[in-house]
């Protein structure tokens, strides 16, 4: 197994003291293609938010092994994007070059070529000059993938990337993800489609607030594990007792 890209050390994440991800320990190897699976409220998105630094851990530690903002690209589940904004598809995708252009750097001709290549990779070549408001939901998701492509990040986090996307687009996007992996990038994707995970993702993390299973996909997605996952109770208890897991472990 190659060097880790991300390590969780007994990490607990949550909101207002209520844990959403409970005592997770483990490593994501560089170049891994990891699917995160679990019921609603199981902590999948929370885990990704913690990796991008949007959420501070309640306890425990997250080690990114020197990877900073520059190295992580993140496609959130709920994109807070103003689709009515007057901006062209080309300009939107070109924002993926932020790390090179910064706030005021110009786009030289080689950048134009790369933006065009990214658009071609997601089969949107003909739509470059259209406003993003004119795109369908699936086309817009492709635009976001093209932008991710240009970010050229070592770690790519996808939170339910195939929402509202048709089968052909899923196939295209899966191909892109496979390409990322072959380039040695680490990809973590939150997914609901178990069949998709079985087919394309070698490694799976099954979450239900606690880690139910983590490892090679066939050994994780067993009927028993999936049944446990389905019975996960997402409601948190307002009167839950304080968790003493850490102390117990230390004295044990």
């Amino acid at each position: 197994m190659s060097a880790p890209a991300i390590s969780f050390h007994n990490l607990t994440l949550g909101y207002d003291r209520h844990p959403a991800v409970h005592h997770i320990t483990g490593e994501v190897a560089q170049g891994a293609l990891l699917a995160v699976v679990g019921s609603n409220g199981a902590g999948k998105s929370t885990l990704l938010k913690a990796i991008v630094g949007e959420l501070k851990p309640l306890s425990g530690r997250l080690d990114l092994h020197g990877n900073g903002k520059r190295d992580i690209a993140y496609l959130p589940q709920v994109v807070d994007i103003d689709r009515g904004f007057p901006i062209s598809v080309f300009d939107c995708v070109a924002m993926g070059l932020w790390h090179e252009t910064g706030a005021s750097g110009g786009l030289d001709p080689s950048c134009d070529v790369r933006v065009a290549e990214a658009l071609e990779a997601v089969s949107l070549t003909g739509l470059a000059s259209r406003p993003v408001g004119a795109l369908s939901g699936g086309q817009f998701q492709r635009v976001l993938f093209a932008r991710l492509l240009l970010q050229d990040a070592k770690i790519i986090l996808l939170d339910e990337p195939f929402r509202a996307v048709d089968a052909r687009t899923i196939a295209d996007l899966i191909r892109l993800i496979g390409q990322w992996q072959s380039e040695g990038r680490t990809v973590i994707a939150v997914l609901h489609d178990i069949e998709l995970v079985r087919r394309y993702f070698p490694e799976t993390l099954l979450l239900a607030r606690d880690v139910l299973a983590w490892g090679e996909t066939p050994s994780v997605l067993t009927p028993v594990n999936l049944d446990r996952s389905r019975r996960f109770d997402e409601a948190f208890d307002d009167h839950a007792a304080v968790c003493h897991h850490d102390e117990a472990r230390e004295t044990a």
């Binding site: 690209a73 993140y74 994109v79 932020w98 970010q151």
Partner: peptide, 23 residues
């Protein structure tokens, strides 16, 4: 003129701006 690009991004996709920079 100086803050033009970050300002456009902040209006269009603030999440993304936050994820790539401190602007």
């Amino acid at each position: 003129a100086v803050i033009y690009r970050p300002l456009v991004l902040e209006c269009f996709d603030p999440y993304y701006l936050r994820s790539v920079s401190n602007w």
